[in-house]
Computed example of a mutant assay.
Amino acid sequence: MAALVDLIAIVLLNVYAAVLIVLRAAVYRVRLYRPMLVNIALSFLPVVGALVGIAGLLLLAPVVEVLAAGLHEGAVVLVWIYLVVATVLWVLFFPNAIYLITELNFSHRQESDPVPLWFDIVQTLTLTLSGIANAIAGLAIVQTGFVLLADPNGHSTGAPGFSWVFAGVVIVLGALGVYLGRYLRFNSWDVRHPASLAHKLITHLREPGRALEAGGFVLSHAVLVALVYVPIYVIFYRALFS
């Protein structure tokens, strides 16, 4: 029940962020900044993807049970194929949630805008918090799913180490994805062209100071997300398995 309440609160936070963006244009008669609305939708994808992935695994369970009953090795193979494909797809879209941290640069604000600074602060901060909430919710769902898959009874003493390693890797990759999106303007679907992506990244990092900048960006963002995620997930995990 608590998890459902948390999910509803996160949905409302996303809705509130969208409402503020629309109100900014309607009340102060300025141009509607549509990229922010698009970013809200993209940032919520990791939550939707995590829920869909878990649902797909549950739907796959009867098939796996039938195969396993016949001692068919395909049961294990089927589960692993599903997990790998679903996880890779989810990780590709995970950076879209963390990306909203970079909206704090107020790039949408013009000097001639009649919008009060206090409104833009609340609006942008709400947008950023919605992204962080989406990232936490999506990662928490996936991490818990892996824990339950490894041990259906759960670990009352705390989440197992392998799940924390997974979470750490995802957070770092998420921060890297944000850097690629903000500075090289890559999107999640650009992975379809890996050669072009790698060429642009290598060319970018060869510029003086770029590698150090990228390292600092990824490290600082990853640490921020981790410091927020870890204590929240620990509380969530204890409540779930206590």
Rank of each mutant, 00 (worst) to 15 (best):
R24G: 04
S163N: 01
L184T: 11
F119A: 07
T102R: 11
R29P: 11
S163C: 04
S107V: 15
P95A: 02
V165I: 11
L127N: 02
S156A: 11
A86Q: 13
V63C: 01
G158T: 08
Y237H: 12
Q110D: 13
F241E: 09
N187S: 12
S163G: 05
G74V: 10
E207D: 08
H193G: 06
A198W: 09
A198C: 07
H221I: 10
P152K: 00
V47I: 12
S196M: 14
A9R: 14
A175I: 09
A198Y: 09
A198M: 10
L92R: 13
V5W: 13
V115I: 13
F241H: 14
D151M: 13
L117G: 10
G56T: 06
G158I: 09
V47R: 01
L4D: 09
I98D: 12
R34T: 14
G158S: 05
V88N: 03
L71H: 15
L59F: 04
L7S: 14
A3Y: 11
S130I: 05
L173N: 03
T128N: 02
P95L: 06
L240I: 13
G70F: 04
L129I: 08
I81K: 10
V88S: 01
V169L: 09
Y33F: 14
V91K: 05
V15T: 07
E213L: 15
S163M: 03
T157H: 15
L20F: 00
L20Q: 06
G216Y: 01
F106V: 10
K200V: 14
L42W: 00
V88P: 13
T87F: 05
Y179I: 13
A135T: 02
P152D: 03
L139N: 04
E111A: 14
I98S: 12
L173K: 08
E73P: 13
G215S: 05
Q110W: 13
V88Q: 03
A41S: 10
T144K: 12
L197K: 10
I40L: 08
L240W: 12
Y179C: 13
F93G: 06
Y233D: 14
W90R: 07
H199E: 13
L205A: 04
L4F: 15
L139C: 05
V27N: 02
P114C: 04
V76P: 08
Y33L: 09
A140C: 09
V225Q: 02
I10P: 06
L127D: 00
L184F: 05
L227K: 09
